[in-house]
Amino acid sequence: MPAAARTSIDGRPPVTGSTTMSEITASTIVELNDKLRHAREELEHYGELLLMIQKAILPQQLPSVPGLDLAVHFADADGPGGDFYDVHPIGPYHWAIVIADVCGHGLAAAAILGLVHALANAVQDQQGPTAPAAALALINRPLATRYLADTGQFVTAFVGLFDATSQVLTYSCAGHPPPRLVRGSEVRRLNAASGLPLGIEESCEYWNGTLHLLAGDRLVLFTDGMTESTNAAHDLFGDNRLDAVLTAPVSSAAELLDRTVDSVRTFRAGRPADDDETCLVAVVKCGLSATPEFRK
């Protein structure tokens, strides 16, 4: 057989007297580097695609909700993640207010977020408004028994149902950081109706809490990327710092949101965020039943 036709089993040139081990090693390293570069490019492409999907399922802009002044902040830490928020109508006078966070960060968290969004849409398609606790139970069951079983993954969530006629908020929580109700200078943590995060236990029960909102009340929902933000000394921003910021008098939801986000960034002092950050603020205005249009 001519020498030019000889090849090894894996396709590489055979070792001959003129081929040194260093040449073979160098060729192998180049090949491995090419494969690693290709793999990195594929991961970057998947990451960019999932980030696009994540941003697509978030509201492009907040709706106009009777009786509420709304503002939101969302910032991804570095590529796709698991933060989610939404405000949407359910019937003529009810509005769903949702915030959720998938455990961890990156491609897996973003993929799970898309799944949770699909399950939530399936629940929403049912006739009439679904009570928050019932909605969480319906989403939890397939996550715990099928999609997240034995993965160690879970999702925290807060679901509120706002009645614009009575200004009553019915809510339920699945292991999510408790939203804050700020009334005057008092900060109250809405932790009276909290169960396990979604995807952990099929039989977990969720229950509803109710809150009659008053004009001037401030409702602040957030993910743990806000309170667990750290500075150069690795100190947490924490719940107490957050509560202190929220007591300052403000005239709008945007003002309170800006004050909160600026406080977290100032605390970090230029250090990049370790996790996605989401904060949704609602300032309560006069009720729908008090407006002339509704009384007619």
Rank of each mutant, 00 (worst) to 15 (best):
L143S: 07
F154N: 02
V87H: 05
T156S: 15
P63I: 00
K35I: 06
V168Q: 14
G114Y: 06
R271K: 14
G175M: 07
Q153W: 11
F158Q: 08
K296W: 05
F154G: 03
E23W: 04
A135C: 13
T165V: 14
A233R: 13
E23V: 07
Q167P: 01
P249W: 04
A75Y: 02
A118H: 15
A77N: 05
A131L: 14
R241F: 02
T19V: 15
I53A: 15
Q167C: 09
P177E: 09
K285P: 01
A164Y: 03
A144R: 08
G160E: 04
K296H: 12
H94P: 04
Q126W: 10
P178E: 05
V65C: 03
T130F: 04
T223V: 00
P13V: 00
G114S: 13
S185A: 10
G114A: 12
G67M: 02
V72M: 08
A282D: 06
A56I: 02
E42Q: 11
A192H: 13
A4L: 09
I90A: 13
P2F: 12
I57T: 13
E186H: 12
H212G: 02
P89E: 03
G11M: 12
A122I: 09
A110I: 06
A149W: 09
A254S: 11
V264L: 08
